[in-house]
Design a protein around this nucleic acid. Structure first.
Length: 509
RNA sequence: GUCCCCAUCGUCUAGCCCGGUCCAGGACACCACCCUUUCACGGUGAGAACCGGGGUUCGAAUCCCCGUGGGGACGCCA
């Protein structure tokens, strides 16, 4: 609905949209609002001035892009409003939970810089007055709340499970889709005043289970109970939860509590094929980007732009600026397709302007994960490694290219690309050029790129040739290929001894 | 099948709320050229979109309706 960006204040939604056909539902809506707004006064705490948002993942699988963005939008909103970002672990599914996945949630959030003010205590994160923050430790709280519904006649037991009871006239009907007779309840549609979608109506007409027959409470119940208990003011979550929201609103009503503000953000679609992105899709895992040496600030910047924008043409922005500008009405309503090319570009842009020390540190970290490249690189010594990395920084699109891109700096047995060799050796007398270059380098000043460059240019001029006549064959002899950093930089970094050795070996071939 | 959400270049999007300034702007990708010491970066340029149909209006990408398409939800999963 196009009224989305106009969050009408204070539930005044009832009156807008006039004549045609809305009269009936409008009237019923009033009844509904009346029912739950009266007892709300008794339960709801004083006016909450501070925004409290939560990210509530389940440790049942890898942490993926979609979850990361939901966490990010919550975090941004908390930072923007000076509110609290809560991490709550929804680990009620005993079958599928695992500590490894839980650890991955903590690691990924930390890596992305999404620190939580309240939640499980991990490192500098967590703590808070509304714990415990793992649902597996909150059973007593759920039991009390279910008892309250039972006592108030809003829940009953059947088939060993506990069901939430809808209030209204009941009737039986055969459900074609599920092939069974079900009991339905006559009710006006639930109204959701969504900060991103606008007004959404959805009919909820069947009682639903809130505690399984094995005694475990279900998602809908624990989610609502915790959001009440933790004083959550804004629920920012994926649009896939929009259809659950009617159940949740009914539960709030059952507890006599005014629901928080809802904001359903668009989904991220997989880049190839139909459907939303899931943990199994190509490029879906946060862990993977971390492992591939992506810069978290680049990934965060990219993720912000999937479903949100600052309202102008800016894309690459410091996080502080994003925090300043981020707001719920600026979030898009349509799903966005993930594009790894754009992410790679963003990553390169960040890489290019990374301070030298940090670039080298990240490169070293990356090499450590790749033992073969690592041992050779480390054997060459810290300062040589640093020089090689800084020489390559402006040339690569990502840290993951580094080991292959720089391999010949660290290994003497690099291979010579046959095609390149044939091409380079085809015209002129490259070997003669190489001999002239070696002669010059024996005594030349190799202390800076410009010194090397001047010497090479002088040599070329003396022989009536161009810089390129020396560059291509020198590159071939030193690296075996025709791509790489500037040749002058290579000579400077490799040093006289190594350069002369490689040239001689090449001439002997 | 039922219900809900959405709809601008291949992709992410600006513009839409408050109709004219839009023969629709930016970015990624692609192509060409320039720069150049290879490869990149960078610069310049090209191609590329208002889903369709009705309506309202002097005028619609912008408002309304209907189609169509895409997405989501329909569990004693979360």
């Amino acid at each position: 609905m196009p009224t989305a960006r106009d969050p009408s204040p204070g539930g005044a939604t009832v009156t807008e949209r006039a004549p045609t056909g809305a009269a009936l539902t409008g009237g019923m809506r009033w009844v509904f609002l009346h029912v739950y707004s009266t007892p709300a006064a008794r339960f709801s705490t004083a006016v909450m001035s501070q925004v409290r948002v939560r990210f509530a993942p389940s440790p049942t699988g890898f942490f993926h892009i979609g979850s990361a963005r939901t966490a990010l939008f919550n975090w941004l909103y908390a930072r923007h409003t000076g509110g609290v970002f809560i991490l709550r672990i929804e680990d009620t599914d005993k079958e599928r939970n695992s500590d490894a996945y839980l650890g991955l949630i903590y690691d990924s959030l930390n890596w992305l810089g999404l620190n939580w003010g309240e939640g499980p205590e991990v490192g500098k994160n967590g703590g808070g007055d509304f714990g415990p923050y793992r649902q597996s430790e909150r059973s007593e709280i759920y039991r009390e709340h279910v008892q309250r519904l039972l006592d108030g006649g809003r829940a009953y037991e059947k088939d060993g499970a506990t069901w939430f009871k809808l209030l209204g006239d009941r009737y039986e009907v055969f459900d074609e889709h599920r092939k069974k007779t079900v009991t339905k309840v006559k009710l006006p549609p639930v109204v959701i005043d969504d900060r991103i979608r606008g007004r959404v109506e959805r009919l909820e007409d069947e009682d639903f289970v809130i505690v399984r027959s094995d005694g475990n409470p279900v998602f809908h119940l624990v989610n609502v109970v915790d959001d009440i208990a933790m004083n959550v003011t804004h629920i920012i979550r994926g649009e896939d939860h929009l259809s659950n929201t009617s159940k949740h609103v009914l539960l709030y009503e059952g507890f006599g509590v005014q629901p928080p503000a809802f904001a359903h953000i668009p989904l991220i679609l997989k880049q190839n094929g139909p459907g939303k992105m899931s943990k199994r899709d190509q490029g879906a895992l946060i862990e993977e980007y971390q492992r591939r040496g992506y810069l978290s600030e680049a990934l965060v910047n990219f993720l912000c732009l999937l479903g949100w924008n600052p309202g102008d043409d800016r894309e690459k922005m410091p996080i502080a600026e994003i925090i300043r500008l981020f707001d719920l009405p600026g979030v898009n309503q349509s799903n966005a397709r993930f594009d790894d090319k754009k992410l790679a570009h963003m990553n390169m842009a960040y890489l290019l302007e990374l301070p030298a020390d940090r670039f080298v540190a990240i490169a070293r970290e990356y090499f450590q994960l790749h033992s073969a490249a690592h041992s050779a690189a480390m054997a060459a010594g810290d300062s040589y490694f640093r020089d090689v990395m800084l020489l390559s920084q402006p040339k690569v699109k990502g840290v993951e290219e580094l080991p292959a891109y720089t391999a010949y700096f660290f290994n003497e047995d690099f291979s010579i690309d046959a095609k390149v060799r044939d091409k380079v050796m085809a015209k002129g007398d490259p070997k003669a050029r190489l001999r002239e270059l070696a002669e010059m380098l024996k005594a030349g000043d190799l202390s800076s790129d410009s010194a090397v460059e001047e010497a090479m240019k002088a040599l070329a001029a003396k022989n009536g040739l161009g810089f390129g006549d020396y560059q291509s064959v020198a590159r071939l002899a030193l690296s075996g290929t025709n791509v790489g950093p500037s040749i002058t930089g290579m000579i400077r970094v490799m040093g006289r001894e190594r350069v002369l050795m490689r040239i001689e070996r090449f001439l002997a071939m």
